[in-house]
Amino acid sequence: MRYVTVDGALAFVEEHGDPGAPAVLCLHTAGQSGVQWRHVAPELAAAGYRVVVPDLPGHGRSEPAPGGPVDDLGAYAAWCLALADALGLDRFSVAGCSIGGKIALDLAVRASPRLDAVVAMAADAWTAGRPSVKGLRRELVDVAAPSRADRTELGTHAVLGRGIDPQRARLIATMHRREDPVVSNSDLIGWATHDLRDALPGVACPVHLVVGADDLWLDAERVRWAASRIPGARCTVLDGVGHYPMEEIPGFAAVLDGWLRDLAGQEAA
């Protein structure tokens, strides 16, 4: 664990595994932090990866972005590339969820030659204006209301899959209460406005899109459509899973390892 200066601010980064092993960058969801990968990262490292888990600017233990809360996922993608440069990652894979998944897709668009594989979970090319950007901006006026933490917890429960153990669901929802509402709303504005549809055919690295069948934030058909626009891309719909596969699925590191190995085989072919 260490701090790295990226774009003039300190970024907190966890690293697990052999520094010489194939690197995989793991990206968290809106308003959250790398803690979402706490169970996955050590097991993924044991499977033979250098696992890099950053807190995006203004999240977790990273300093805020110099320009304030970020509402452009493209800016986060550029930040990830700057982080990779700072860490000496010439080539790497990316696994992300929600805004992290969409950032992973953005990286595939802008940096395919550097990427061994991309696993984009709970993400599509464009959310068709969902959630309401107008509503999110209005909500920024009063997000410090005490009820916000409860709303975050209840909202997290709502988008978890029906197959999750109730005790695990309570833990995930409780952890999600920690988010900064100004940062998370800005993240969601970025989520709702980021449109990659026209750029997807130019992606030249192996990509796997993943969506939970119980994810109320996404339409699985829109995710399938995005995959169909990317040459050679795969799409998986996970039964009984909601918006947070890496938190909901026990032993997820083995699942992700399998996806990454399949994509590596695809690239070799």
Rank of each mutant, 00 (worst) to 15 (best):
P64K: 01
W259I: 02
A86E: 15
G34L: 09
S112W: 01
R168S: 08
G212T: 08
A145G: 09
L25S: 06
I189Y: 08
A226K: 13
A173S: 15
E179M: 14
H176W: 13
P146I: 05
E153R: 15
D165K: 12
P69R: 12
A149G: 01
P206N: 09
V241F: 09
V183N: 12
F252Q: 10
L73N: 08
T152Q: 14
A220Y: 03
G161N: 11
T5V: 12
D7H: 05
A45F: 07
L256F: 13
L25I: 06
P181H: 14
D85C: 03
L209G: 02
A120P: 09
D219V: 06
A111M: 02
V35R: 15
P42Y: 10
E267R: 15
G67N: 08
R2C: 00
L218W: 10
R50S: 04
I189C: 04
A125C: 04
D55H: 07
G100M: 00
G212Y: 09
A123E: 05
D72L: 05
L83P: 11
C235D: 08
S184D: 07
F12C: 02
G135A: 13
A41R: 12
G212C: 05
V52R: 10
G68P: 10
P69E: 03
H28N: 12
R91Q: 14
G58S: 04
E63F: 02
L263T: 12
L140N: 03
I103E: 01
E247C: 14
G190E: 05
P19A: 04
V203W: 06
L216A: 13
M175K: 12
K134W: 06
G163Y: 13
A192Q: 03
A45Y: 08
W79I: 00
G100A: 01
G251V: 01
V118W: 10
H28W: 09
A213H: 11
Y244N: 14
A86V: 06
F92L: 08
E63Y: 03
L263V: 12
W126M: 00
E179Q: 14
G74L: 10
D85G: 10
A169D: 07
G240R: 07
R168G: 02
D116C: 00
L105A: 03
H39S: 08
E15C: 12
V13Q: 11
R148A: 09
L140P: 01
V210S: 02
P250D: 04
S228T: 10
A41M: 06
A117C: 04
G163K: 13
W37Y: 11
A128V: 01
D55Y: 07
G20N: 08
M1Y: 03
W225F: 07
P57F: 07
T152I: 15
D150Q: 13
W225H: 13
P57K: 05
D195P: 04
V159K: 05
A233W: 11
L238R: 00
M1A: 10
E14V: 00
